Computed example of a mutant assay.
Amino acid sequence: MKQAYIFDMDGTLFQTNRILGHALDDAFTFLREQERWSGETPLAKYQSIMGVPLPEVWRTLLPTHTDDERILVDQIFQGALITHIKQGHGALYPGAEATLRALKAADHPLYIASNGWNNYLAAIVTYYELDRWLDGVYSIEDVASLQKSDLVRHILSNHQLTQATVVGDRISDFMAARTNQLPAIGCRFDFSNEAELAEADYIVSDLRDILKLSLASLSK
């Protein structure tokens, strides 16, 4: 079997930044209407922690709120994200389709390992018809620990993969690769930062650059 590629979704294939602020504002507008939030929508704070599981996001953004309130806000947020996706407000990164198409044409198995929920991922895959190239889409919901390292391990086990490369933009992606003894390609995109990218084995500024990397150099 040829080397597989395990892609992150947000900030790697999908330009989440195009819809994140709008969806987050919808959620916090609800809180303001309920008189449970009085400040600005904490978009910058969310952007700084992109890549962590959503329960951790809400504990960080809403430290004094109840679990029930966080669950409700997450439901509003998820609904808003999906609505914006279906309305075409998001976008894939330049070269995403070309890269997936080329890798698939070369018989590389392709998977998604995302901290996003299943319904959210399904909306992206459906809208952009990514199932033309993907062999599997996995959400952090698929592992009890809600840890990206365990999700990647789950994919490796499910598909009996012996060679794979993780492609992502945040430290959770690179640590998932390292934990599973896989190489990591870091994407220098919207949510990335240089300190975290230093943990990747390779760094690209365009997804199409992945096609230029030597497969031999990615094998460990």
Rank of each mutant, 00 (worst) to 15 (best):
L92F: 02
Y93G: 06
Y93A: 05
Y93L: 09
Y93M: 06
P94Y: 04
P94C: 04
P94V: 07
A96M: 00
E97Y: 01
E97D: 05
A98S: 11
A98Y: 01
A98T: 10
T99I: 00
T99H: 03
L100C: 04
L100P: 02
L100N: 05
R101W: 04
A102M: 10
A102T: 13
L103I: 00
K104S: 15
K104N: 15
A105D: 13
A105R: 09
A106S: 13
A106Q: 13
A106I: 01
A106V: 02
D107F: 12
D107Y: 14
D107Q: 15
H108C: 08
H108P: 04
H108Q: 08
P109N: 12
Y111D: 07
Y111C: 09
Y111I: 09
Y111A: 10
I112R: 04
A113Q: 08
A113I: 08
S114C: 10
S114L: 12
N115G: 10
N115V: 07
N115P: 00
G116P: 00
G116S: 12
G116K: 01
W117I: 11
W117K: 11
N118H: 05
N118E: 07
N118T: 14
N119D: 14
N119W: 03
N119F: 04
N119C: 02
N119T: 13
N119V: 06
Y120S: 03
Y120E: 06
L121R: 03
A122V: 12
A122C: 07
A123P: 06
A123M: 11
A123Y: 08
A123E: 05
A123T: 06
A123G: 06
I124D: 11
I124E: 11
T126V: 04
T126N: 13
Y127C: 07
Y128N: 12
E129G: 11
E129C: 13
E129D: 13
E129S: 15
E129P: 01
L130F: 13
L130Q: 11
L130P: 11
